[in-house]
Structure formats: C-alpha cells, structure tokens
Design a binder for these strands. Structure first.
Lengths: 208, 208
DNA sequence: GTCTATACAGAGATAGAC
DNA sequence: GTCTATCTCTGTATAGAC
C-alpha cells in the first residue's frame, strides 16, 4: 500500500508512539467495558499513568480517541483474517470471523460495532480510518459470503449484505453478557452457543 | 339497574396518575432512543411539559424512573402475549414474541433488554417490579420453548435458557439500526429478515 | 405538587509554567 | 510534552416560595 515508516526513528518518537498506543489500548478497553458515554478520559489517563491534559497532545478529543480505538480494532480483525489459512473454505472463514468477534467481546470487551444508540456511532461515520478499515474487511467478507452462498452453505434467502451485518451485529450482541451474568457456563461454551444460534438458527435442523 | 360504577380514584389522583404515566412514557421513549447515559431528565421534563423538579415528586431519581419504564415495557409484552390466540401453536407464539420485540425497537425505540454495557443494567437487577414482570413472561416463554422443542420445531441442541436469552437479546440487537441506516429497506422488510436470521440461521436450509 | 432558582458534582477541554 | 490548575458546561438533585 504505502511506504513503510523509516526504519530508524528517534527514541523519543518511539516513546511517543508507544504512549499513544497505550492510550488507545486503555481507551478501547474502557470503551468496550463501559460504553462511550460512561467511560471518562480521567479513567483513561489514570490507567495509562499520565495526566488528563496530556491526552490532548495525542488526540483532539474523546471522540477522535475512541474512533481511533475502534479503527484499530477493525485493523486487528483484518490482521486476524490475514492469518487464516489460504485454503480454508469460505464458510469456515466466516465462522472464524464470528468466533473472533465474539471472543473479542468477552476478552478485550471491545466490540467491533457499537450498541444501537451509542453516541460514538455518529462520529464514527465521519472517521475515515475506521470506514476505510471496515470497508477493507467487508470486501473480503462479502466475497466469502457470496462464495458460501454459491456452494450452498449459506442461505440464499438473505441478501449478502444482511448476512454481513448479521455477523457484525453479533459483536455488540447482549446475549453473551446475559449468559455470562447468569453464571454456570464457561466462556467457551457461551461462544459455542452463540455461534450455533447465529449460523444454525433456533429452529430444529434435524427434523424438517 | 343502578348507578354506574363509581370512579375508583379521585379526580386529582387520576390526574396524578396520568401525569406519572406521561412521564414514564417520555422517559421510555428517550431511554430507547438515546440510551440511559445519554438521555437527560431535562429532556423528559420538556417533553412532558413540566418542570424538571416535578419529576422528583413522582420518582426518586433517574434510575427509578427508567426502571419503571422498563418494567412497564415488560408489562406491555405480557399484555401482548395475553392477546395471542389460545390455540396458537407454541412455535408461532415465540415467533410473534420476537416480532413484537423487534417492532418495539423500531417504533417506540424502547428495547426490552438493555445494551451490553448500559449503566441501567445494574439498578435493573434490584428493581423488583421489573424482575417480577420479566419472570412472569419468561415462565410462559419457557413453556412454549419446551413444547416447541418436543414438537421438533426448535433445536434441542440449545438449552431452553439459551433460546430464551437469544430471543430477548434481539431486543437490543444493533442489526435493525444498521440495516435502517443503510437505507433502501422498509421497516417490515428489516423485521422479516431479522426474524428469519434468528430462527432459520445464516446457513442454508434447502441443501443440507 | 408545581414552579423558579440554586447547590453540587463530574467530565471535557484549555492555559500556562517548566 | 507533561504537568497542575482552572474554566465551562451539563446534568442530577434539592430548597423554598406559592
């Protein structure tokens, strides 16, 4: 794509970048845990160990910081997809994609898509980095969906886009939290059920 | 025969109740639209047409007001279930339940279950009215799920509770908002797709 | 019970010294 | 660039007149 960064960056620049990374990471964690409105920059600063005002030397404000965190999450998904075996069937790729989304919600607590009424959804539509990264993974996922539909693995009754959004939406699905709060289930069990509910549906498949 | 039934309450008490109802309705609408953190009591008061301070004559605070709105939403679901034909098969009852949940999200914008990380989820666990109402509808839904599973209409691979939670979770599913924002689809089309994705799953059913 | 006015707290953002 | 200190605004909640 573009030329890689110059190999030799000054020590100070490296530290600067590392700190920015730490800020984004903390923001992403808190964003996923508490939501955009409930999280505070004070918490972010405290978690990183810097003063609140220092955040503004790296980011213009709360919205930009959180949008960066979201864009980075999409980037991680792209990297994960890159790591999938090249010969993995399209349907299996989509299953892995879903598992990754669900696992992220349970571990990092940072969902790829935001809740229905998050205040960050508006600013996110104007974040070029996020939109571009999302477009990139969406293109790949769309290819897989079309292929899986041709192979008869995915329903052709649903438009390609509806399937794509259905997968994305699982990222902010409250189902996982509900099952976890209920207690008695392992995280892995919860993810398995969520994957099954999404792909197989609630209706019986054994006896048509 | 005799005089009509006397009013059960005094006129003033009726007005008081009516105003409280209007407050709850406005709170519920704003809660669904903007979420617990983003909505403000000022908006609620403005929408009802009363002073902000007057709200505290009816409710102890924001949490109690919103919890009341949520409990009332569950009550509406219960009333809807009461209105279903007595001879409707269990599976069809569950389908209607899901359609009702999704329609509520699109119209009233008030979801039955909250987003994964809403600040109201904690207080809601301590709200007896909400828990009791939810318990009541859950009991009925659980009966239907068990019956539908016996009839082979619902998957027996998923525990009854996972199916129940999967239905409830659709109430806060971001899928509908995503499809609506994309544009080009009618609300009815969106609900149909969401129902189909939930019950039939994304996998093909025609060709095993 | 409803209003106006206000106290109080929290959070985003900025100023200015170093 | 980072800090301390501060500004400003918003929102919950309360006080007191009527």
């Amino acid at each position: 794509m573009n030329t890689p960064a110059p190999p030799r960056r000054s020590f100070k620049a490296q530290m600067h970048e590392a700190r920015a990374q730490a800020i984004v990471a903390a923001a992403g964690r808190l964003l996923g845990e508490k939501g955009f409105e409930a999280m505070t920059l004070e918490e972010v600063a405290a978690e990183v160990g810097v003063a609140k005002a220092s955040l503004y030397k790296h980011f213009a404000g709360k919205e930009e910081l959180c949008a960066t965190a979201m864009a980075q999450a999409v980037g991680r998904l792209g990297a994960f997809l890159d790591g999938l075996p090249a010969d993995l069937p399209a349907f299996e790729c989509l299953r892995e994609l879903l598992r990754w989304l669900l696992s992220q919600q349970l571990t990092d607590e940072l969902p790829l898509m935001l809740a229905r009424n998050s205040g960050l959804r508006g600013p996110l539509k104007d974040c070029a980095a996020y939109q571009a990264a999302l477009q990139e993974v969406s293109a790949r996922a769309t290819e897989w969906i079309a292929a899986a539909q041709r192979e008869g693995r995915l329903s052709e009754a649903l438009p390609c886009e509806v399937i794509l959004y259905s997968l994305y939406a699982r990222s902010a699905d409250p189902l996982l939290s509900m099952l976890r709060e209920r207690g008695g289930y392992t995280d892995e069990q919860i993810v398995d059920w969520a994957v099954q509910a999404c792909f197989d549906g609630l209706k019986s498949r054994s006896t048509p």
